[in-house]
C-alpha cells in the first residue's frame, strides 16, 4: 500500500481532521513506518492459524439480563454537551442523510 497525498486526504475526510502541510508530512512518515511493521508481520505464514479476535477468547462473554438499569435524567444527560436546547442535544444544521 502506498501512502500518497490522495490517501492522506481520504483519511482526513474520514476522521474529520484537517492537517497542516507539515503535519501531513509527519503523518505520512508515521503511517509508512506502521505499514512497514505490518509488512514484517506478514512474513509469517498464518494460513493454518485461527484468527484471534479477542484476547480472552476462551472466556465466555459477560452478558446482561434484560433489565432496565440506571438512566441519566435529561438535565444530567445534557450537562456535558457543548451545546443543547432542552431537551435536545443540538448540532449545526446539516442536510438530511
Amino acid at each position: 500500500m502506498v501512502i500518497d497525498d490522495a490517501l492522506i486526504s481520504k483519511l482526513e475526510k474520514l476522521s474529520r481532521l484537517e492537517l497542516r502541510e507539515e503535519e501531513k508530512v509527519k503523518v505520512k512518515e508515521d503511517l509508512n513506518k506502521m505499514l512497514g511493521m505490518f509488512d514484517k508481520l506478514n512474513e509469517v505464514d498464518t494460513n493454518d492459524v485461527e484468527p484471534l479476535r479477542y484476547v480472552l477468547d476462551e472466556h465466555s462473554s459477560a452478558i446482561r439480563d434484560d433489565v432496565v438499569g440506571e438512566e441519566l435524567d435529561n438535565h444530567k444527560a445534557l450537562q456535558n454537551a457543548e451545546e443543547s436546547k432542552k431537551p435536545f442535544f443540538v448540532v449545526p444544521k446539516f442536510l438530511k442523510k
Partner: peptide, 24 residues
C-alpha cells in the same frame, strides 16, 4: 421488544420525552 437496550440498561421507550432514556 426487549425491556432494555442492546448494550446497556436504558429502557426502550418509543415516544418518550427526548433524551430521558439515556446513560453514560
Amino acid at each position: 421488544n426487549t425491556y432494555s437496550k442492546a448494550f446497556c440498561g436504558d429502557a426502550l421507550s418509543f415516544g418518550a420525552e427526548p433524551n430521558t432514556h439515556v446513560s453514560t
